[in-house]
Design a protein around this nucleic acid. Structure first.
Length: 825
RNA sequence: GGCGGAGUGGUGAAAUGGUAGACACAGCAGACUCAAAAUCUGCCGAUUGCAAGAUCAUGCCGGUUCGAGUCCGGCCUCCGCUACCA
């Protein structure tokens, strides 16, 4: 048997073995407790990158560990397979998105298999499989029936490069999340999911997810953006009705001196007086053409125009000119803002520019503001003034009081406002799930009847990259009969956002072969919720919010019991090299294929787990990879050096161990304890690995001697193998076999530490004088505090430090430390 | 502007309020070798000292405590998210 560690041979051998034995196949028929482990599935872009290696290595440690701990672990893998890049590649290569996608999946699957990941490959799915997206169409129709999917005309985010609409969540910094092009607004008739119906529950439950990182929850809360305030009606002068505003600062109503409307406000033109029509409509036009990023930029100059009309302040009856202002947004609140220039910075700047009146209604504690000398708005809380009966009140209290007052006079209502908008899901692209709807001139919008599902995405499509969606240009697809009246009708040619597919794939993994409906409830309820979800932080408000929404919808539709999809969430850090995220454009990528070819996947896995804790960014370092490889070689060598000795060793007989053997065994069992604690719950894989390295450093110099020392060595090396198994499954499986074990390591349980073995016989106690380390004493474990104190006070070094001083106090911590507090004199 | 997170050796990082820097990378010295690689051994925060040791040191300033990298208050810097959200 060769003595050199050659990863390639053993890794292929064991991967084949696991695959043939279906080692990681799971079913629901077992007494073991279930554990659903999931890593975010990849987009089949072509090849896996280091981010995948890291994500799936982390997941695999958890999966293998939980299996060894006796759990029935569901650990599936699949492909987020619809999307733009496939279409772009097809246009470029004159091939088909399906061909490109399935070829990529095949290659990436082989790459993942080379990593030795413990997936149940029988549950693999790709979202572009007809068997997947057909059920999604059914979900859509059920949502449509309940009013949770609806169509409306509105201004939507338009990416000119991708030639498609984007959801709010997919606009990053004013640009497209995929191609970074500037996003503009376009008025279109589009499909939406009514996620706003769930705003309250989505927010509420962020306080019931202790297993999620706080920052992700905070991001979601900010995104949902709940604010408490008032809707207040401002009567129009000489008009029958009023303009409604939303404000969170009803304590400043007495200071409102004018009104600002969004240029898109539906009543903008109606309120404009005849003499101003021309200039106002020119202003509205100009704002519409300004792109969204510029308009919403912080430093964009505030600009507006007077409509010629006035409204009345409901509390002061003051006459307030009505303006249109470029900084007022139509899609937040009511699209109308009461302007309080003294207490809002935007209104202040606007008032200064157009010379509008300022009135202070909140005074800071111990100060008096004068409107004529103010250089900026005072936005903090303070004491009410110029506010009638509310004068003298704290402004925070006045919020409630004024809201009540307005409500009692039917001039306003307390309301809650959300920032969250409905999710626009229409995409004007081919490679996606067709929205199962038909348009009939007579019957209107008609859902495709269930028996006609699925609407199959046609294959024989021409990709030119021009003229919008290829589906819309395909007569044979578009033309159909109205399911309701039979007349000639047109099919919807938009497809669903790819985030729809990733919003429920984790449910389908529970029953991927189910033919009779969307989900097999018994199986889904057995597995759900996902016990541990692992993926990148970049999905904090996109995928992770949508998936929560879908879970609630499917619960309410009666398909599942779970309220929340993911009980615990781990967001792993990025892979960094030379100070920047690995990317092709930076030229700092390390290719997993060549890494695995050179060192084997065990080394690739080990380094990505050892170099940093999972949630932190990982700094890639080629020499560090060498170090991990070296460590595996040391394990390999040590096991082989001791092979004959340990194969013939008797079981450990605790009673007959000498002090050296007891010490060695103590180190072994302490390591078992440490690794177990680090992996379980904490996911501190780096320190877990470090502790095994330490153990190996201890074992390496140990000389063979008595039969009992060989017995301890055997226990030690078996433990090293077991403890390293979740991290580096191939080398450990191989060594396990070579050590003479007949049951494969993948069928073996996790070691338990021996409580008696970890008890120290002697401990080093630190002696401090006034908190500074002055000496160390070695004592028998269990030495009482009183004894410790006298031993410490008698210590030679301590004596020299306390000589001539008064001992004020002695603090003793058993087995740890003595602190002697002395005073001069 | 708002909200989060983080700041520890040359580097990646460790430390339930109790020995700061485990483990590793890099570096230095030595062993083996004709030589090199590999491997093994030792050293490896700063200042000072022949040494034993001493002093300083976890972004900065203060506080709580016998004792603070860790807890509290105030700043500085970096990163992330969000942002004319009324």
């Amino acid at each position: 048997m060769e003595h050199k560690y050659v990863p390639k041979d053993i890794e292929e051998k064991w991967q084949l073995r696991w695959e043939n034995d279906k080692t990681f196949k799971v079913s629901e028929e077992t007494d073991k407790p279930k554990y659903y482990l999931l890593e975010m599935f990849p987009y089949p872009s072509g090849r896996i990158h280091m981010g995948h290696v890291r994500n799936y290595s982390i997941g695999d440690v958890v999966g293998r560990f939980k299996r060894m701990r006796g759990f029935n672990v569901l650990h599936p893998m699949g492909w987020d397979a619809f999307g733009m890049p496939a279409e772009n590649a097809a246009i470029q290569n004159k091939s088909h998105p399906a061909t490109w996608t399935y070829e990529n999946i095949a290659y990436m699957r082989s790459q993942l298999k080379k990593m030795g990941l413990s997936y149940d490959w029988d549950r693999e799915l790709a979202t572009c499989d007809l068997e997947y997206y057909r059920w999604e169409q059914k979900i859509f129709l059920e949502m449509f029936a309940r009013g949770l999917a609806y169509k409306k005309t509105s201004f939507v985010n338009w990416c000119p490069t991708c030639e498609t609409v984007l959801a709010n969540e997919q606009v990053e910094d004013g640009g497209c999340w995929r191609c970074d092009s500037d996003v503009s607004l376009k008025e279109l008739d589009q499909w939406f999911f009514r996620i706003t119906n769930y705003a309250e529950e989505l927010l509420e439950n962020t306080f019931k997810l202790p297993g999620w990182p706080e920052r992700v929850l905070v991001m979601q809360r900010n995104w949902i953006g709940k604010s408490f305030g008032c809707e207040i009606d401002f009567p129009i002068e000489n008009g029958a009705d009023a303009i409604r505003v939303f404000t969170t600062r009803q304590d400043t109503v007495f200071g409102a001196t004018f009104m600002s409307l969004a240029p898109e406000h539906p009543r903008a033109m109606e309120l404009t007086t005849a003499d101003r029509r021309e200039s106002v409509s020119a202003f509205i036009d100009k704002i519409r053409k300004t792109d969204r990023i510029k308009r919403t930029a912080d430093d964009f100059e505030k600009e507006g125009i007077f409509t010629g009309s006035y409204c009345l302040n409901p509390l002061t009856k003051a006459r307030m000119p009505i303006f249109l202002a470029n900084f007022v947004l139509m899609d937040y609140g009511t699209g109308a803002v009461m302007a309080v220039p003294t207490h809002d910075q935007r209104d202040f700047e606007f008032a200064k520019k157009y010379d509008l009146p300022l009135k202070v209604v909140i005074q800071p504690q111990g100060e008096t503001l004068d409107p004529s000398t103010m250089s900026e708005a005072f936005t903090d809380s303070g004491i009410m003034s110029n506010s009638g009966t509310f004068d003298g009140m704290k402004s925070d209290d006045a919020k409630e009081a004024i809201a009540d007052y307005l409500q009692s006079r039917s001039a306003g209502t307390k309301t809650v406002n959300f920032r969250l908008r409905d999710w626009g899901i229409s995409r004007q692209r081919y490679w996606g799930n067709p929205i199962p709807v038909i348009y009939c001139d007579v019957c209107g919008v008609v859902p495709v009847p269930e028996q006609d599902l699925p609407v199959v995405l046609p294959r024989d499509v021409v990709f030119t990259g021009e003229g919008g969606s290829p589906l819309a240009q395909m007569e044979s697809f578009v033309r159909c009969a109205c399911p309701s009246c039979g007349r000639a009708a047109r099919r919807e040619t938009d497809t669903m956002d790819t985030f729809v597919q990733s919003s429920w794939y984790f449910l389908r993994y529970c029953c991927p072969d189910y033919q009779d409906g969307i989900l097999d409830r018994d199986r889904v309820d057995y597995w759900m919720s996902v016990d541990q979800y692992i993926g990148g932080i970049e999905h904090a408000v996109l995928h992770l919010l949508y998936a929560r929404f879908f879970t609630k919808v499917l619960r309410d539709l009666g398909y599942i019991a779970a309220d929340e999809p993911f009980t615990n969430l781990l967001t792993q850090g990025m892979v960094i090299k030379d100070g920047a995220k690995m990317s092709k454009s930076k030229g700092n990528v390390v290719d997993p294929d060549s890494l695995i070819k050179k060192y084997g996947s065990d080394t690739a896995r080990l380094f990505s787990l050892f170099a940093a804790p999972p949630e932190k960014d990982l700094d890639w370092n080629d020499q560090g990879v060498e170090g991990s490889f070296r460590f595996l070689n040391r394990i390999w060598k040590l096991v082989h050096d001791r092979l004959d000795e340990i194969k013939g060793a008797a079981p450990v007989d605790v009673a007959s161990l000498g002090p050296t053997e007891r010490a060695l065994r103590r180190a072994v069992h302490k390591t078992i304890r440490k690794v177990t604690e680090d992996v379980e719950g904490r996911f501190h894989f780096n320190t877990a690995i470090a502790s095994v390295m330490e153990l190996l450093n201890t074992l390496q110099p140990a000389e063979p001697g008595t039969p009992q020392s060989s017995a301890v060595m055997r226990e030690a090396l078996q433990s090293v193998i077991l403890l390293m198994a979740p991290f580096v499954p191939h080398i450990t499986e191989e060594l396990w076999q070579r050590m003479g074990n007949t049951v494969p390591l993948s069928q073996t349980g996790w070691p338990e530490y021996d409580r008696n073995a970890v008890v120290d016989e002697e401990v080093t106690v630190v002696v401090q004088v006034n908190g500074k380390l002055r000496s160390k004493i070695t004592v028998v474990s269990g030495t009482s505090e009183g004894e410790l104190e006298s031993l410490a006070l008698a210590d030679e070094k301590v004596v020299s430090f306390i000589a001539g001083k008064t001992v004020r106090k002695v603090i003793c911590v058993q087995g740890k430390l003595v602190n002697i507090v002395v005073e001069q004199g």
